[in-house]
Design a protein around this nucleic acid. Structure first.
Lengths: 207, 207
DNA sequence: GTCTATAGCGGGATAGAC
DNA sequence: GTCTATCCCGCTATAGAC
């Protein structure tokens, strides 16, 4: 019973508690807007304990970002294995919709993206951590998937993957984060259809 | 000479000084990271003067964002009138490159985008102001331009415009802001070429 | 290791002279 | 209208008891 297994391994229970509290606070209030008092209160520990584990506020933030990038949000927001291609159009449509669903319905994920963009000027190394563990694998995975569809005849699958992801991420940023859906509504199906139309030209993928 | 025209109208000289100082500070340090003391110092006025003009910190921030959205950054980042279409491919290439140049070389514009995304959760009305005065006109302008190129045969020009802009903006966010260019480099010409390739399929626009 | 208590400073905001 | 001087609170960080 000493090494109880309700939680685990590299981090002490207290460290994990602290990181959980820190996640809530930093995702909600940003770096400068977060106080160490409230992190400690949310985590249910004293402020001194926070400092003894992470040194200072920057250290805590850095540890949090690396944990979030490498663990909590590392699952790609692209649908993983697809049913062997019945209909290529349906497969592509599913991929886009899965990615949009995951982004739109995960407010923590949106808050993390927002936080990383917000602090990218002041913490460039952490921004790069985000790029390395989230943006890069996402692009690589989609590049591989697009490459595997030979009917698409894509001359540059990686650049095409960036266009695809950029279109979807920008859609979520503008419509959801920047409140664009009220003043410039656009159904997501139109975006996905237009994307598929662009992909369909040099291929056998016709409506 | 009383109504001197070097500057103008709705704002006093002092108010403009203050907004200039506020712009530097908020763009550099974010909302929570900006202190009213430094805004006053940067603007060259006393703190009390700042408060007498704008009420409180939120009021100043709100006034600043609205000014930036409606004036300083309202010029669209898309090339305006194009040489009558010699070669459609060249025209589209120029449009994309002009937009990328404007985004990449205007660090104030990047900082403004970053700030709006950063504060969109805490100031949703201001985020919407940004969407209304910048994102929406940008999309509308590009939509009109794409619609005018009948050879492209686009079934949904507005959705296509969003894909185009999303691809370019996302490229700048990932490569420039998030420092992706070091760990996942991609020349901008590849992105633009891939975009033009996608557009070229149902049209006479061939390489 | 973790707590309570506090130091020391900078924040937003205002009073009152001019 | 604009300044100087100041209030008071909350912040990061630490000392010292346990």
């Amino acid at each position: 019973m000493s090494t109880d297994s309700t939680q685990a391994q590299p981090l002490s229970d207290k460290a994990e508690q602290i990181l959980n509290g820190a996640m809530q606070e930093f995702l909600t209030h940003g770096y400068a807007g977060t106080s160490m008092d409230r992190v400690a209160a949310t985590a249910g520990v004293s402020k001194a304990t926070v400092y003894s584990h992470f040194g200072d506020k920057q250290g805590l933030f850095s540890a949090l970002v690396q944990q979030l990038a490498q663990q909590k949000f590392a699952r790609l927001f692209i649908s993983p294995e697809q049913l062997p291609t019945h209909n290529l159009r349906e497969v592509l449509e599913n991929m886009a919709n899965t990615m949009l669903d995951n982004l739109i319905h995960d407010s923590d994920y949106q808050a993390f993206i927002r936080l990383m963009i917000a602090e990218s000027g002041r913490f460039p190394e952490l921004a790069q951590t985000f790029a390395l563990h989230l943006a890069k694998p996402g692009i690589e995975t989609l590049t591989r998937q697009l490459s595997s569809f030979e009917e698409l005849n894509l001359p540059d699958p990686e650049a095409t993957a960036r266009i695809w992801i950029g279109a979807l991420v920008h859609y979520v940023i503008v419509q959801e984060m920047l409140q664009g859906k009220d003043i410039m509504p656009m159904e997501r199906d139109r975006l996905v259809d237009a994307m598929l139309h662009l992909l369909s030209t040099n291929s056998k993928l016709n409506n």
